[in-house]
Amino acid sequence: MLAESGKIDRRELTRALLADRGGMLVIAGLGAPAWDITAVGDGPQNLPLWGGMGAAAMIGLGLALAQPERRVLVLTGDGEMLMGIGSLATIAHQAPKNLAIVVQDNEHYGETGMQETATRHGTDLVTMAEGAGIKRTMRVTRADEVPPLVQAVRGADGPFFAVVKVDEKSKPLVLPPREGAILQARMREHLLGPEAHLA
């Protein structure tokens, strides 16, 4: 679970979050989180994003409202979450029980060359989420905090928001399909059956 730095390894974290996931749907923010969920296992319950920086949490909200019986996990980066930070207020207001957001906070914009983000300099995303009105939150820095995190993500009393401080090193690229129409259609078919394509 830990990288050489002693910090949590983002891919091992992703593996733990998605192991025995049941019906849980996952939206992954662009860049490393999208590669992480793909490395752990690509399939119709995943929507890895190729763009739309700042959109991940709100896509999760629209999906969670449309599919109240399903768990929805948004897994994203600190940079992506900062760009869509207002959505935490929107999500707190809607308060979907089935939505969890986990930020893999490496305190950098990894994808674009490791420039530092505001979380490197004192910005605390958990405090921001709490200020936005999200009541169930968690800060994770140690390996023994991961199992309770996994449990909280699967709990039914969301919205839930967590920040996991992860090792900043980039992992090998594992790319999902690049055709967005396929990524969307496969999740719709998974949820709605063949009817999805006749809607």
């Binding site: 959109a55 629209g62 969670a64 409202l65 929107t90």
Partner: peptide
């Protein structure tokens, strides 16, 4: 209707994407 009041309009674009993924029109 789920009426979703946004902090900025682009959130609405992302919401529509999520709604459609889950089979709802918005």
């Amino acid at each position: 209707l789920h009426v979703v009041s946004l902090t900025t309009e682009e959130e609405g674009i992302a919401l529509m994407q999520g709604a459609w993924l889950g089979g709802q029109r918005s």
